[in-house]
Simulated assay, not measured.
Amino acid sequence: MTRVLLADDETMMRAGVRAILGAAPDIEVVAEAADGREALDLALRHRPDVCLLDVRMPHLDGLGAAAELAKALPGTAVVMLTTFSEDEYIAGALGSGAAGFLLKSGDPRELIAGVRAVAEGGACLSPSVARRVISHLGDGQLGRGAAARARIAELTGREREVLGLVGAGLSNAEIGRRLFLVEGTVKAYVSAILARLGVKNRVQAAILAYEAGLVPAS
């Protein structure tokens, strides 16, 4: 069972998200918060698998809460759930250590799939957000590509293979099936890759994999 903490300052929005997640038999909302500070307190108490945080909240916004959660509970995946898709919010979310960025206007199925993905060690971006990220990566791609290839040069061949599949959005279990590795081994590879590349999470690693040309063609 994937345990979720939901933080949003709008009561009706929390009720709607809870109803959506309640339709999934493998997801349970274990706590709700109306602001970022309360979300931190409840997360430390309940230690959920996933925290769904609104970007704009009183006392402490979602980006600030995500950054603190990344330090206090590194095993908890954070997904930003928001109405706003401005570039500054996307960049802030990815920079704060969030594993995903979903829009409230998206398909409810995206929310359930996103929670499942990050709980399994993957990442999730709403399709419109993913297009914007990739579009920005395309600007000046050659220069960043060379820099990214230099950064991954120290990785082993197997680590680069795993990184490419992380960039393709696969979870640890899916990577294990693809490479005939047990999930624990994949998790160890991913942790080592993040540490050696100096990135905070799988989303940042995926962007680096894209820039370096490691993402397999779909």
Rank of each mutant, 00 (worst) to 15 (best):
M1S: 14
M1C: 03
R3K: 12
L6I: 12
M13G: 02
A15F: 07
A15I: 12
V17D: 05
R18P: 03
A23F: 12
A23R: 15
D26L: 06
I27D: 09
D35G: 10
R37P: 01
E38Y: 03
A39V: 14
L40I: 15
L42T: 06
R47Q: 11
C51G: 09
L52F: 06
R56W: 03
P58Q: 07
G62R: 08
G64F: 08
E68H: 04
G75N: 12
V79R: 05
A93T: 10
S96M: 07
A98Y: 11
F101M: 01
L103F: 03
G106F: 01
G106V: 01
G114V: 13
V115E: 13
G121Q: 11
A123S: 14
C124D: 00
L125G: 00
S126T: 03
V129K: 02
A130R: 02
L137Y: 04
Q141Y: 15
L142T: 09
A146G: 06
E154N: 04
L155S: 11
G157M: 01
G157S: 07
R158S: 13
E159M: 05
E161D: 14
E161V: 06
L163Q: 11
G164C: 07
V166N: 07
L170M: 15
L179H: 05
L181E: 10
V182A: 03
G184V: 08
V190L: 02
R202F: 02
A209D: 07
E211K: 05
A212V: 14
P216T: 09
